[in-house]
Amino acid sequence: MRGLRKYAFKFFWGVFVLFIMGFFLLPLLWLVTAPFDAKATLRVAIPSKFTFANFQAIFRNTFAVRALFLNSIVIAGGTMLGVTLFATLAAYALARLNIRGRDILAYLLVLFSSVVQGTAAMVPIFLLLFHLKLIDTYPGVIFVLIGGLLPTGIFLMRDFVAGIPKSYEESALVSGARPWQVLRDVLLPVLRPGMMVLAVWSFVQAWGDFLISLIVMRSPAKMPAPIAIYSFYTEGGTPVLTLVSAYSLIYALPVVFLYLFVNWRYGFRFFGGIKGGGR
């Protein structure tokens, strides 16, 4: 009886895992096959006419290349720098200063940003940028992204800083180091892994953003990749699947590489911190 139950459990476990793998893998296959097919349809199939011509066509399109290799990189890179720097400073200060209720405060700020960021704040953010003359500029998009991502960035980083004992800095100071030396030689090395994760996370968030650029950017020369991709449509309004799939793949690859890098270097997982304010 016990043995039977054990086999039944193993069987259902296997079925479940197989189902999950199929569920997460199958929708992605098209992004891997269609770009190499000279006659790509919406069908997933081993390309009958294997080709790199779709990619060549994209690299000949200066508008699309500029969107991907200039605009998207400027937006994601700028956001990454801002979020990493400001969130690290703020998280460090929060962890080392005695501010009452800071844990709850940090958590509420994350909830708050989840509510306000996105579609709910579109109208005031558009008007704000309009008055600041930041519509159709890189800083316009970058600032909005930084503001939206900072609460979660601080939350992630705060957890990391909290794990570093104060004695690190104190012993360095006692042995006569100047504060900025402590910052550079003691703190920066131990904070670096956390900052790396923060940088990758914010880059990926900004890289994938569609809505804010859609609202803020006006001129084609400044459109990032997720908006430029909608230029690969026929006059009749149907997507040119060879180009759309190839462009999607190039656009998605950096995220996959960053994931593989973080997973290999640090292990992609959450640490104990995301418990919420309940305790």
Partner: peptide, 17 residues
């Protein structure tokens, strides 16, 4: 890895997929 990649890929790319 598969689940995480589904989560972090750009929205526009997964929308076409």
């Amino acid at each position: 890895s598969l689940a995480t990649i589904a989560w972090i890929l750009p929205g526009v790319a997964v929308a076409f997929a």
